[in-house]
């Protein structure tokens, strides 16, 4: 399939290369997954600023801290499950406490490494990274947005975790629309329901909005690609006036985007909220991405049905 844009991980690798060209302080560390993470593009152009650390994520993360102390902007790479999990203590202590400008690429995020199964699928990385003070957590919905995010990562202060999907996702980010970290992008307007999502679930929320429209329900759809810090004012505006809110994520329902939205909305008056996510289970091997997403109920139909149930239940007295 040919598309006008590179898919997310390729867009990530190209953007990393562009940052390397624009800024000599950008350095890249890799834990032997460069062909998947696409850090190889940087390696070919800037071998002296590329550090192959071997299969040693903990050392990689703390080495990045040392590089950041000398003024470098390190981008470290592994699969999301290892980047966030294996190196958690190093990210916590060596990187987040001193607020270092280390960028953590959690590649093959969520279930997108569908064949490799639960050891290689990340259902908890957002929860882990979101719980760290000073950490920014990003989850782009497509290659266009991933590239826009990368442009912000030279100047953005403090550590950043970015979730990168390995599959070919549809291109949804409006190319003429400006981008900044923290932006909540409206992709569809509607009056009855607000569908909030990040990553692969944005497309599914748009499809859910179409299903709802067939039933006469008008849904607005927002991309919440900055999971932390979540812009409270923008979120309140996004959900103002609707009768139901559905938050969808490719992640455990514990601690991810849904939790972030509920924490942010907590005391303010708001419509009832339902979450679509993975119900506290690990992943599984599957023959393709669509199959595994369907298996865990991460579907447009599940989103639209959740919205309908909230509407039919009506407002709480």
């Amino acid at each position: 399939m040919t598309t006008p844009h590179p898919n997310m991980r390729e867009a990530y690798g190209m953007a990393l290369l562009a940052l390397g060209k624009a800024n000599p302080d950008v350095v890249v560390l890799e834990a032997d997954l460069g062909k998947s993470t696409r850090s190889v593009l940087f390696q070919e152009a800037f071998p002296e600023r590329y550090f192959q650390m071997g299969i040693a994520e903990q050392n990689m993360a703390a080495t990045a801290a040392g590089l950041a102390f000398t003024g470098k902007i390190p981008f470290i790479h592994s699969f999301a499950v290892f980047a966030a999990g294996r190196a958690f203590d190093q990210l916590r202590n060596a990187v987040c406490i001193p607020k270092l400008k280390v960028r953590v690429c959690g590649s093959s995020c969520g279930l997108s490494d569908f064949g490799d199964g639960k050891t290689h699928q990340s259902v908890e990385d957002v929860a882990l990274m979101r719980s760290l003070p000073n950490m920014t957590v990003l989850s782009p919905m497509d290659g266009i947005e991933a590239a826009r995010m990368m442009e912000c990562l030279i100047d953005w202060p403090g550590p950043v975790y970015i979730r990168v999907n390995r599959s070919n996702l549809p291109f949804l980010y409006p190319t003429s629309e400006p981008y900044h970290i923290g932006k909540i992008t409206r992709l569809r307007d509607g009056s009855d329901v607000a569908l909030l999502a990040a990553g692969v679930m944005v497309d599914r929320s748009l499809k859910a909005a179409a299903l709802l429209a067939e039933k006469g329900v008008s849904a607005r759809v927002f991309n919440l690609s900055t999971i932390k810090p979540l812009d409270r004012e923008a979120l309140m505006a996004a959900v103002a006036g609707v009768r139901a809110i559905v938050v969808s994520e490719e992640h455990n329902m514990i601690g991810g985007l849904g939790s972030a939205v509920l924490e942010t909305l907590r005391a303010a008056p708001h419509a009832p909220v339902e979450l679509i996510g993975i119900a506290d289970r690990f992943g599984l091997s599957a023959s393709d991405y669509e199959e595994i997403l369907n298996h865990f109920g991460l579907t447009a139909r599940a989103i639209s049905e959740a919205a309908m149930q909230l509407i039919e239940a009506g407002p709480a007295d």
């Binding site: 993360a61 040392g66 190093q90």
Partner: peptide
């Protein structure tokens, strides 16, 4: 920031490379 044991040599490596 050190004290969670085992990290100082890695941080030192990063500083030396930088």
């Amino acid at each position: 920031v050190t004290g969670s044991l085992g990290m100082g040599l890695s941080i030192g490596l990063g500083m030396a490379l930088g």
